[in-house]
């Protein structure tokens, strides 16, 4: 794809990336501070959060927090 094309998509791709990164960082920060999970669980969740795009962090924030 030509460069001008990519430039044309930037206004929509940048907000999208920002949203995804925000979500991932929020989930990771929570995971690091979470005292209710042991080390092994944390590593698994970290991998899920980083590599399963979008769904991973959401799954963690819904099911992985073990807070309520």
């Amino acid at each position: 794809m030509a460069l001008p094309d990519i430039m044309a998509y930037l206004p929509i791709i940048i907000p999208l990336l920002i949203l995804q990164v925000t979500l991932m960082i929020t989930a990771l920060l929570h995971l690091v501070k979470n005292e209710r999970l042991d080390r092994n669980n944390k590593i698994v969740w970290a991998l899920v959060i980083i590599f399963v795009n979008l769904i991973g962090p959401i799954l963690y924030l819904i099911f992985g927090r073990k807070e309520d």
């Binding site: 907000p15 999208l16 949203l19 929020t26 979008l54 959401i58 924030l61 819904i62 309520d68």
Partner: peptide, 14 residues
């Protein structure tokens, strides 16, 4: 506080 609204915001914005 349990991130539910945050998740909605991200999902619906995406």
């Amino acid at each position: 506080r349990n991130y539910k609204l945050f998740i909605f915001f991200i999902v619906f914005a995406i």
